[in-house]
């Protein structure tokens, strides 16, 4: 029990405290590829700090507008408690896999609702794009996790990780892992799929009316979401190396998260933003891939 509480604290700490560092790391990579000096590694912390220090504008959209950022960050933190990040997940029960997928789709919905409540046409367009993306990409997450679940014959997250660890990769796992990786870019709202925000087209879309602490909450939630998504992907499809020593496992997970985020950033750096129709086409392909993985799993491969 004590250990679980300890892990819960660790998970929350990693998602909350370390997430901005992840963003700072991405910005450093970006600076290197852009041949420029770039901001310091801790810049994202400074940015959040600054945003929190700004006046909290009441904003245009009433209760929903004000609640959305809180709900967004809250759901991410709750999700953190169900996500294994090296060690076992602090909370878990039969079917927690579905709960997690639901929890992870809440941030997107919160962003959408917040955007719609303020009524700016840019936010509206951003929200509708976000909706289309969520509707196409979230099922991929569900299908791939489900695929792993079929193989492991369990819908408990902890089992999925354990199964891959003991049985190694199967064809279905490789396909599902690939599909999940291909949709990661969109889940993390990175180019070429940062279509809902699209600064140069619709001025950060859903966030156009947000500022100060509320914007900081949103941003923080999105950074935290990166940690969760990547950890989830790693734990289910690439759980190695596992030593069984909690500290070492936590650390190795962290290192892996940084490697993946570096990869994600590199992909972001060599791509322009796609149009929503092009992105949806792409994800239809990825969804088909994920379904193929599922089919393989059903066939026992």
């Amino acid at each position: 029990m004590l250990k679980l509480i300890f892990i819960a604290v660790i998970n929350l700490a990693v998602t909350l405290a370390l997430a901005p560092l992840l963003d700072g790391f991405m910005r450093r990579i970006k600076a290197v590829v852009h041949s420029r000096q770039g901001p310091p590694l801790l810049q994202t912390y400074y940015d959040l700090f600054k945003l929190f220090g700004k006046e909290d504008m009441e904003g245009a959209g009433g209760v929903i507008f004000r609640l959305a950022p809180v709900v967004c960050l809250g759901s991410v933190l709750l999700a953190a408690l169900f996500t294994p990040m090296g060690g076992p997940a602090p909370l878990g029960f039969g079917g927690d896999l579905f709960l997690l997928v639901y929890l992870l789709s809440i941030p997107g919905i919160a962003i959408m609702l917040g955007a719609m409540s303020c009524g700016s046409p840019y936010a509206m367009l951003g929200a509708s794009r976000e909706m289309m993306l969520v509707l196409t990409v979230e099922p991929i997450l569900l299908i791939t996790l489900f695929t792993a679940g079929i193989k492991a014959d369990s819908l408990v997250l902890a089992d999925l990780s354990g199964w891959t660890l003991t049985h190694g990769w199967s064809i279905s796992a490789v396909i599902a892992g690939l599909a999940l990786f291909l949709s990661l870019q969109s889940e993390l709202a990175k180019l070429p799929f940062d279509i809902a925000e699209a600064e140069t087209e619709i001025m950060e879309g859903p966030f156009v009316e947000y500022s100060g602490p509320k914007l900081a909450l949103f941003k923080w939630a999105l950074y935290a979401k990166m940690v969760i998504y990547i950890s989830l992907f790693l734990e289910v499809f690439l759980p190695w190396p596992k030593t069984g020593i909690l500290a070492a496992d936590l650390l190795s997970n962290l290192v892996k998260v940084f490697i993946v985020i570096g990869l994600v950033e590199l992909i972001e750096l060599v791509n322009p933003r796609l149009r929503i129709d092009q992105a949806l086409n792409y994800f239809k392909g990825v969804a088909v891939l994920a379904l193929v993985g599922l089919a393989f799993a059903l066939m026992g491969l």
Binding site: A31, V32, V33, S35, Q37, L266, L269, V270, N271
Partner: peptide, 19 residues
């Protein structure tokens, strides 16, 4: 193409000044 783009970037190194 992507590979070539990445190479161009890395070859250039850091060029901006700490102005």
């Amino acid at each position: 193409s992507k590979w070539k783009e990445a190479l161009i970037c890395l070859k250039a190194g850091r060029v901006t000044l700490p102005y």
